[in-house]
């Protein structure tokens, strides 16, 4: 019984963590390049709506789910481009621009939902798949091989993003413009262009994460579907020290804590629920406090626009 509960907790945490991983990886790219985007939450909302809407008008089915996700990536890229124009080209204050983008996304998604859907309705979405043979492996089968396909796609995205960042010339440029943009510029790297690309990638990933929520997790769109997950993902980038694997572990730890507290409640373990729901947040704060070296790992020019014509 206890082993079943533990397996259930871990198995439930994996799909839950995917949202954070997707947004976190995207945010990692733009933060590595020196731009933090607090608007990820708003981009997620628009992505969640558009992904849902595309499947809704195409009357469901796996093909329409994937089209929905592509639409969410496209709109996320577009919103990322808006953020990039504002903060990279026009050098606006990144925190304020991010909050404005969040509010814009929330409003736009809600308005489009009201105009084009008009009320709560559901779609088929992408459901969990039991992978033949593998899902019957004891313990591992239940934990790893009974999830929707986006879980596996995300697990491929993690090493890909690591490779992109650490084994390609482009990745080197990204790290350079986030740490020493003046030096990168003198070496011929187009700082603003690289930053722009990274913010667009961050937007695309946030859009995809939003679509994951509506298409894979809830099969529905409702106002404020993201419920702060975009902001948590931004925090998890710090937690993960701007590394894809760090973000994965952070997302898994946070999701495990959530899954654990839900199981405590469901199985009737006598524990105040108020503390149980706080537990994941307390855990993240505690780990952040203990790992005080996070700031050392941070891109040194994070949040600071690059003025080519000015002296440092």
């Amino acid at each position: 019984m206890l082993s079943e509960i533990i397996i259930g907790i871990i198995a439930a945490a994996i799909p839950l963590s995917i949202t954070f991983v997707l947004v976190g990886i995207g945010e990692m790219f733009n933060q590595r390049a020196g731009v933090f985007n607090l608007g990820a939450e708003g981009i997620m909302m628009v992505g969640a709506f558009l992904g849902f809407y595309v499947e809704y008008i195409m009357k469901s089915g796996p093909g329409s789910s994937f089209l929905g996700m592509i639409a969410a990536i496209a709109v996320g890229s577009l919103m990322g481009a808006v953020m990039a124009v504002t903060c990279v080209n026009f050098k606006a204050e990144q925190g304020i621009a991010g909050i404005a983008l969040f509010m814009l996304g929330w409003g736009v998604a809600g308005m489009l939902f009201r105009v084009y859907i008009g009320g709560t309705t559901s779609i088929v979405g992408l459901k969990a798949l039991d992978i033949p043979f593998l899902n019957s492996i004891p313990v591992l089968g239940a934990i790893l091989f009974s999830h929707n396909i986006m879980v596996y796609i995300t697990l491929v995205i993690i090493p890909l993003s690591w490779y992109l960042l650490n084994r390609t010339a482009w990745g080197l440029k990204v790290k350079a413009v986030g740490t020493a943009p003046r030096a990168a510029d003198t070496m011929g790297v187009k700082v603003d262009r690289i930053r722009f690309q990274c913010v667009v990638i961050g937007g695309a990933m946030a859009g995809l994460a939003g679509a994951y929520l509506s298409i894979c997790q809830t099969h529905i769109y409702a106002d404020n579907i993201t419920a702060g997950r975009g902001f948590i993902a931004v925090a998890l980038v710090y937690f993960g020290k701007w590394k894809p694997t760090g973000i994965l572990w952070g997302a898994l730890l946070f999701s495990l804590a959530h899954s654990f507290q839900r199981s405590i409640q469901v199985y009737g373990i006598d524990f105040p629920y108020e503390i149980a729901v706080m537990f994941p947040y307390i855990l993240v704060i505690a780990v952040l406090a203990i790992s005080g070296s996070s700031r050392i790992m941070a891109p040194t020019m994070l949040g600071r626009p690059y003025y080519r014509e000015q002296r440092d």
Binding site: A12, A227, S259, Y267, G268, V277
Partner: peptide, 27 residues
């Protein structure tokens, strides 16, 4: 019969509500 109660800690977090429902079903 057993009635098992679990709270999300929010009124509007439908993803969390879905996860609690999933945990109830597994239980």
């Amino acid at each position: 019969a057993k009635v098992r109660v679990a709270y999300t800690g929010s009124f509007g977090d439908l993803v969390a509500a879905g996860e609690i429902a999933r945990t109830h079903i597994k239980a």
